[in-house]
């Protein structure tokens, strides 16, 4: 399998953390192959990111253009559809940009699409067997992907462990000129600006102890139970996304891939199921304690300590015990 590619996101001149995971996944698919990293962007930041990617990947394709300074899937998709050869396998990390780029790219390449894979279990007869999660992570599924016309495969960040490979001296090929000569494709989606997430009055990323609340709290009025416990512990309150979507708490308190990444000593998850996007913000948390009424909630896989309880009833009991212990 020679046609193995990884699309690498980068920021401020450095490849995204997932680059090494994509390499590990590529090696799993074809240990002998020389996977090609593809990076798109502009200027010195792109050059720097390509240099670093070349320490991981034997080959790097650089696509540079001022229009690509801001990642724009609508511009990149037709370029990749021209550059990536027929029948190739293209890996990328399943996050916001991939969700924008990848499904349509698979169509334009005439390739199959496997979204958000968490493991590969083997290749047999031109089909890749892999594992995905469904139903908010409550069950997993084995899936089989037809590779005969190529495939785009997005990988759950963190699911494929980066290997301990020694740095290589990859070769960087500039693909910009050749394929951009015809000018940029007509942009029917024109980038205007990026609005940074609001800061907010509490910085949960600095908190040592977080009491975090999820949809299990059921009612805005019940938030009081969470704030009482946090006060008793000397902790800050954070939350999962549905609490912010419902406007019960402001966005700066949200933990996860579209919120903050936190690194407390103790993270007390109350009525949070443990979706991949939520756990994506918990990579730096030392001790996760989960309270959930559902014994099979996925959060118990990430947590160190678990309590099966109804938080509406249990949080006041815990708050009282904490106060008494002080």
């Amino acid at each position: 399998m020679d046609n193995l590619f990884a699309y690498i996101m980068h920021r401020e001149g450095a490849p995204h953390d997932s680059a090494a995971e994509l390499l590990a996944a590529a090696r799993q698919l074809a240990p002998q192959a020389a996977p090609v990293a593809i990076l798109a962007g502009h200027g010195p930041e792109l050059d720097a990111a390509c240099q670093q990617a070349a320490a991981l990947f034997p080959q790097v394709w650089k696509i540079g253009h001022p229009y690509l300074a801001q990642p724009n899937a609508e511009i990149l998709r037709p370029l990749l559809a021209r550059l990536v050869p027929q029948g190739a396998l293209l890996l990328l990390a399943h996050e916001h940009f991939a969700m924008d780029l990848a499904p349509g790219l698979s169509v334009k390449l005439g390739a199959a699409y496997l979204p958000d894979a968490v493991a590969f279990t083997g290749i047999e007869g031109g089909r890749l067997k892999a594992v995905r999660e469904e139903f908010a992570g409550l069950v997993s599924a084995h899936v089989s992907l037809d590779l005969s016309a190529g495939a785009v495969i997005s990988l759950r960040p963190g699911a494929f462990k980066a290997g301990e490979a020694a740095p290589v001296q990859g070769q960087i090929s500039d693909k910009s000129a050749a394929d951009l000569d015809g000018g940029m494709p007509p942009a029917r989606r024109r980038y205007i600006e990026t609005v940074a997430a609001e800061a907010g009055e509490v910085d949960i990323t600095k908190a040592e102890v977080l009491v975090s609340v999820g949809r299990g709290i059921q009612d805005q009025d019940n938030l009081e139970l969470v704030f009482d416990l946090a006060k008793a512990l000397g902790a800050e309150v954070s939350c999962s996304r549905p609490i912010v979507d419902a406007k019960w708490l402001p966005k700066p308190r949200q933990v996860g891939t579209s919120g903050k990444t936190v690194k407390p000593k103790v993270y007390l998850a109350c009525g949070i199921s443990g979706s991949s996007q939520h756990l994506g913000g918990l990579t730096g948390a030392s001790c996760v304690i989960a309270i959930n009424k559902h014994p099979k909630a996925p959060i118990f896989q990430r947590a160190e300590v678990g309590v099966v309880a109804d938080i509406i009833q249990f949080l006041p009991v815990l708050t009282k015990a904490v106060r008494a212990a002080k």
């Binding site: 980038y191 990026t194 609005v195 940074a196 997430a197 966005k251 891939t257």
Partner: peptide
Amino acid sequence: AGGDQEIS
């Protein structure tokens, strides 16, 4: 990522 918003 991170809750930033891209306007187009």
